[in-house]
Design a protein around this nucleic acid. Structure first.
Lengths: 114, 114
DNA sequence: CCCTAAATTGTAAATAATCTACAATTGCAA
DNA sequence: TTGCAATTGTAGATTATTTACAATTTAGGG
């Protein structure tokens, strides 16, 4: 059912987990300007992984995904608040999914071909 | 319409494609210090997506993957050169795979402007 | 041990990117 | 028009990255 090659790429939950990105890259990835990202965060919509105030903001996969989803909805005409409300439930699904996948792959990994 | 939830996470090739990361984040993700990443690049092993000299280096999924693979091999005792040689073939497989997946998933993606 | 080349590391000075905070502007609906 | 949500602008300070030159460590062969 599955080729050995496939495993290599499909899929890198491990990678997604380690993923950390600065605000500039998030802007490039999502198309949402840094200024706007900071604004959303200031409103409590996003929660970046900032270590301490003054230090640069860091975003994980979930954060980036959330930004993308909100942007999509707003492009369709939703207000920020409505978009956030709508995205909230999708994020719950996403989080549960990631959590589940983590449990599967965490116990003892990386004994790959060598 | 076309959104089975499963596809949402599994698998985000689209996301991997847009992914761009700064050198600091790459270091945190891979565990390879920034100084060493620059050294490898200077040797021609890596090719970051730097727009112009003086500007910050940017890395995509393939770059990060390559760094991770090289690091793994070196941790096992390979020299840098040997590790690079070994990784080169794996990267070819990875690239082909990504390319193929791109062809499959690209038509779905719509407006991207702004 | 000595030598050589590979591999890595250190650091200064300049530049790029991000930070916070305060203010201004736009868009829309009542 | 008024009011509020949403966004945008920017100055000045701070953090992160850049290049370049040099020093250090590591592994093998002689």
């Amino acid at each position: 059912m599955e080729k050995p090659e496939k495993k290599e790429l499909a899929f890198d939950y491990d990678f997604l987990n380690k993923l950390i990105v600065g605000i500039g890259e998030v802007a490039k990835i999502t198309g949402v300007p840094t200024r706007q990202i900071r604004y959303w965060e200031e409103k409590g919509i996003l929660h970046s992984l900032t270590e301490e105030v003054g230090k640069n903001r860091r975003y994980d996969y979930q954060n980036i995904k959330k930004i993308l989803l909100i942007k999509e909805l707003m492009d369709e005409g939703f207000t920020l608040e409505a978009a956030v409300r709508k995205v909230e439930t999708r994020m719950k699904v996403l989080n549960e999914m990631l959590e589940k996948l983590n449990l599967d792959s965490s116990p003892e990994d990386s004994q790959e071909d060598r």
